[in-house]
Amino acid sequence: MIQGSMVALVTPMQADGALDWKGLHKLVDWHIEQGTHAIVAVGTTGESATLDVDEHLEVIRKVVDQVHGRIPVIAGTGANATSEAIELTQAAKDAGADACLSVTPYYNKPTQEGLFLHHQAIAKAVALPQLLYNVPGRTGVDMAPETVARLAVVDNIIGIKEATGDMERARWIVQNTPDDFLLISGDDLTAVELMILGGKGDISVTANVAPAAVAKMCELAIAGQAAEARAIHEQLLPVHNAMFVESNPIPVKWAVAEMGLTADGLRLPLTPLSEKYHAQVREALRAAGLL
């Protein structure tokens, strides 16, 4: 089963925006050594929006090759055109990904029926386990829990990354979907509470800088050890907050560079972390014992 700490992996880049393949290999191995349970390649944090299709698929292939079956690889394959999402999902399957993460179509604002038909079409076209991804703050469209329940019984759809932070919604999804349907947090600030309600993991930005702690936190929360999981959450709270002082992945890219893990490369329209936030992010890392 795919569960636990699933790092929303940054895509390492040089200062000029060129992809840093050596840095990517280094990050993958480091995450496995630190206990990360799965890797999400080319999601939002992986800057999918500024990679071209060839780069997008090459990152997936290289992550799969480097992981070499040690932990699951979940490939970001969402698009706002159903045909494109199907093509990306098929390519991810061909590359050897274990599952895909398919964001709700953005900008064109489909209806709930459109969301259902979009994800159903992907699941029917490609025999690869699919995690739905609901993040209305970025996409401009919110997949209603009732639509999630309809999709939960479609073959190849195995779960959802729910990033609203809404615990009542999380509770409803747990109660109204099959027992083997995976509810995964997409919000580090509320991930522990979602797992205590019955969620099975966290697709985490913070795991980029604190993989061992996030992995332990997830293990404890899934096992029902609420007090112990909440204690780790409290220790990581300054980091959770620091990772969103500007748009993701700007702060986390700066943080992994500050830790000496990668270069601090981004592509426009993203820009480097504003200097006024450097001290806050650095202090959050230091307080969590990461520097």
Score class of each variant (00 low, 15 high):
Asp202Ile: 07
Asp16Phe: 11
Ala15Asp: 14
Lys109Gly: 10
Leu237Asp: 08
Glu258Ser: 13
Leu182Asn: 10
Val281Cys: 13
Thr36Met: 03
Ser204Cys: 11
Gly186Cys: 11
Ala38Cys: 10
Gly201Phe: 09
Lys26Glu: 15
Asn208Met: 02
Glu84Cys: 05
Val53Leu: 07
Val141His: 03
Thr44Glu: 06
Tyr107Met: 15
Ala41Gln: 14
Met143Ile: 12
Ala91Val: 06
Val63Met: 11
Asp155Met: 10
Ile39Pro: 01
Ala227Gln: 14
Ile2Pro: 01
Ala210Gly: 13
Ile32Phe: 12
Ile86Cys: 13
Ala41Val: 13
Ala227Asp: 12
Pro72Met: 15
Val239His: 07
Leu268Ile: 00
Thr77Phe: 00
Thr45Ile: 11
Cys100Glu: 06
Pro136Lys: 05
Leu182Tyr: 08
Val174Glu: 13
Leu270Gln: 00
Val103Lys: 07
Pro251Glu: 06
Gln14Pro: 03
Trp172Lys: 12
Val7Cys: 12
Ile203Asn: 00
Asp98Met: 01
Gln175Phe: 01
Ala288Cys: 11
Gln90Arg: 15
Gly4Asp: 13
Thr164Ile: 11
Asp188Pro: 07
Val252Asn: 00
Glu146Phe: 11
Asn156Pro: 08
Ile222Asp: 08
Val141Leu: 09
Leu131Gln: 12
Ala263Lys: 12
His240Ser: 04
Ala223Phe: 11
His240Leu: 05
Ala92Glu: 03
Trp254Thr: 05
Asp188His: 02
Leu290Thr: 07
Asn156Phe: 09
Ile39Met: 07
Gly265Glu: 06
Ala95Glu: 14
His37Leu: 06
Arg230Ala: 02
Glu246Met: 04
Val28Ile: 04
Leu101Ser: 12
Arg169Tyr: 00
Gln175Tyr: 10
Pro145Lys: 00
Leu132Thr: 06
Pro12Lys: 10
Gly265Pro: 01
Arg171Met: 06
Thr11Pro: 02
Leu291Cys: 14
Phe181Trp: 00
His278Thr: 14
Gly78Leu: 08
Ile203Met: 10
Trp21Asp: 04
Val135Ser: 02
Ala170Cys: 15
Ile196Asp: 05
Val67Pro: 01
Phe244Gly: 08
Asn208Thr: 09
Leu117Tyr: 11
Pro72Phe: 12
Leu266Asn: 01
Glu275Asp: 10
Gly78Ala: 07
Ile122Thr: 08
Met1Gly: 04
Val209Ile: 14
Ala99Met: 15
Val67Glu: 09
Cys100Asp: 09
Trp21Pro: 07
Thr206Gln: 01
Pro238Met: 10
Ala75Asp: 06
Gly114Asp: 12
Glu228Thr: 06
Leu19Asn: 05
Ala191Gln: 02
Glu258Pro: 07
Met1Asp: 02
Ile2Tyr: 05
Arg282Pro: 03
Ala287Phe: 00
Asp155Gly: 04
Asp16Pro: 07
Thr190Gly: 09
